[in-house]
């Protein structure tokens, strides 16, 4: 036989030997162990604008990063918690952006009203548009959401609606860059933790059950279409919020809000960061969005790159970075005798 040491042993850390979410925290160290990563994330995100103060360009990147993170969270929520794959995230950005432009420019709503109003209106419209395919299972949702952004672009272009290919200009900008930074960061954190709360609640369980087995959910007296519509509404609200914000940052709403990047980067981020845990989406964006800024020079080649990385991740490491790191964080590994 061998000289021992030929099997890697994995042991869960003591604190994780828990029974159904109940565990005793007995020392400061354990508290730190549990809340450390969370604090790191929150503090990191909040400090980011301060750290990047000398680089105004990168401060803007942080804003865009947050918008992408919102979209990625929405995608992750729909795909891995309810089982609906949304291939057209840019639809949400576009709807939110155009609504914000209409509210702000045409109806003269102030910025702090136009963003939430646009998010709400966009979410309502998106849910109504998607509603017909919600009673169907499988690929219909993916197909229909894939079509909408392309159709919106064509329709706006063809009929010269809403400023046609020039878009709507003259939106109010944020009063200051710090406000601009922190408003989206706070929105992101609120969405992140709020959505996690929803998912950990019983309604989250019901949504999970819809993904697992919708027939049984119906037999349990719950309207599956209603639950799905609610989920779509939540997701599109989050997405439209990002879109409305973005329109105000750019002070412009145009066809590029329906750009492919808004559809594919969130998907790639979720795949890389790991699905099912909302933090994975944020982590994925933290990696991808700065990368995409560096690759700005390459134009559409970036999309090729995302898609390649995305496919590679799906095939080779389908769990994603975040669950992988969580696993490593919660386990000891050591060599043991076989």
């Amino acid at each position: 036989m061998s000289d021992g040491r030929d099997r890697k042993e994995r042991i869960d850390r003591g604190i994780k030997v828990r029974s159904d979410g109940l565990y005793a925290v007995s020392s400061l160290r354990e508290m730190l162990y549990l809340s450390g990563p969370r604090i790191l994330l929150i503090a990191g995100l909040l400090l980011l604008p301060l750290l990047l103060d000398p680089f105004p360009y990168w401060k803007r990147v942080v804003n865009i990063l947050c918008v992408y993170a919102l979209l990625a969270i929405a995608f992750d929520f729909l795909a891995n918690c309810v089982g609906l794959v949304c291939l057209g995230g840019s639809m949400f950005i576009g709807l939110g952006g155009y609504f914000a432009a209409v509210f702000n420019v045409h109806l003269h709503l102030p910025i702090y009203l136009s963003i939430p109003a646009a998010a709400l209106a966009g979410a309502v419209i998106a849910t109504l548009l998607i509603l017909p395919c919600l009673s169907l299972r499988g690929v219909y949702f993916a197909i229909v959401t894939l079509m909408y952004p392309l159709l919106f672009t064509r329709v706006i272009e063809a009929f010269d609606l809403l400023g046609g290919s020039n878009g709507i200009t003259g939106l109010d900008s944020f009063p200051g860059t710090n406000l601009e930074n922190y408003s989206i960061l706070l929105i992101l954190l609120a969405v992140l933790f709020g959505l996690r709360r929803v998912l950990n609640d019983d309604i989250g369980l019901v949504m999970h059950a819809v993904k697992d087995n919708d027939q049984s959910v119906r037999a349990s007296g719950i309207d599956v279409v209603g639950i799905k519509a609610l989920a779509v509404f939540i997701a599109s609200f989050i997405g439209c919020l990002g879109g409305a914000y973005l329109a105000h940052v750019y002070m412009w709403a145009g066809l590029s809000l329906f750009a492919l990047d808004f559809s594919i980067i969130p998907i790639a981020a979720v795949t890389i960061g790991g699905g099912g845990v909302l933090f994975g989406a944020v982590v994925g964006c933290l990696i991808l969005v700065p990368l995409s800024e560096f690759l700005r020079f390459f134009g559409t080649f970036r999309i090729v790159l995302y898609c390649t990385v995305l496919t590679a991740f799906i095939v080779l490491k389908s769990e994603g970075l975040m669950p992988y790191c969580t696993r490593k964080y919660e386990q000891f590994e050591r060599w043991a005798d076989a």
């Binding site: 019983d202 369980l205 019901v206 999970h208 037999a219 719950i222």
Partner: peptide, 27 residues
């Protein structure tokens, strides 16, 4: 209420969490 011939539990949930879904229903 009904049961299914081919059993359709929520496989990815613990047994007792399976019952949360009907318990959550309006009825």
């Amino acid at each position: 209420a009904r049961t299914f011939q081919v059993m359709r539990p929520f496989y990815s949930l613990p047994a007792y969490k399976n019952l949360i879904i009907p318990l959550w229903s309006p009825r």
